[in-house]
Computed example of a mutant assay.
Amino acid sequence: MSFPKVGNLAPIFSLKNQADEKISLKDFRGKKNVVVYFYPKALTPGCTTQACALRDVKQELDDRDVVVLGVSPDPVARLPKFIDKHELNFDLLSDEDHKVADKYGCWGLKKFMGKEFMGLIRTTFIVGKDGKLLQVMDKFKTKTHHEDLLTELDRLL
């Protein structure tokens, strides 16, 4: 599987958020830039580090007219726990059947502690107000993801 092509319209999707409400990418078209970031599992150390850092730069993201959507294969029921425990200030979306991750090319073979398995590959997509994919970020550290993201947003917007 490969990532969608930068410059093309980002694959559209509708997923349930932590409040069991349907959130659609197309709802933001013409209104907001969107950061869609795929993370493997709520309440794990790397995903918590990444999410809390995004929480902490909310004002900088607001200043750039950006909304954040976190997507994982977690069930909807797990998402409120992650939001409440870490006071996250953006929507988390459930992609249990990983159909959206497949569309975005970030479901694939992973290696961990000598074992290979299929899973979600941590990837961030920046979508412009026009719905076009502006950037794919797939090489970053969870600790500096927010800084790398702000740098990319400044370059692109």
Rank of each mutant, 00 (worst) to 15 (best):
T144E: 04
L133S: 06
K115Q: 14
K141M: 11
F112M: 14
D130M: 13
R122K: 00
D138P: 00
K141W: 01
M118L: 13
M113H: 10
F117R: 07
G114V: 14
G119S: 12
T142L: 00
F140L: 01
M113N: 08
G119Q: 07
D138F: 06
I126D: 10
G119N: 13
K139H: 09
L133T: 08
M118P: 02
G119M: 07
Q135A: 11
L134K: 12
M137N: 01
T123R: 01
M137V: 08
K115T: 08
D130Y: 13
H146K: 12
F140V: 04
K129H: 13
T123Q: 06
T144N: 10
K143D: 15
M118V: 03
D138E: 13
I121L: 11
F112G: 06
Q135R: 14
T123P: 06
G114T: 10
K143M: 10
K115G: 08
I121Y: 00
K129Q: 15
M113T: 09
L134P: 05
G119V: 15
K129N: 12
G128E: 15
V136P: 04
K115W: 11
M118F: 02
H146I: 08
L133V: 10
V136A: 05
K129I: 11
M113A: 08
H145A: 04
D138Y: 01
K139Y: 02
H146D: 11
K129L: 11
G128F: 12
T124K: 07
M118D: 14
F140W: 09
F140T: 00
G131C: 12
I126L: 15
G114K: 09
K143S: 10
F125C: 02
F117W: 04
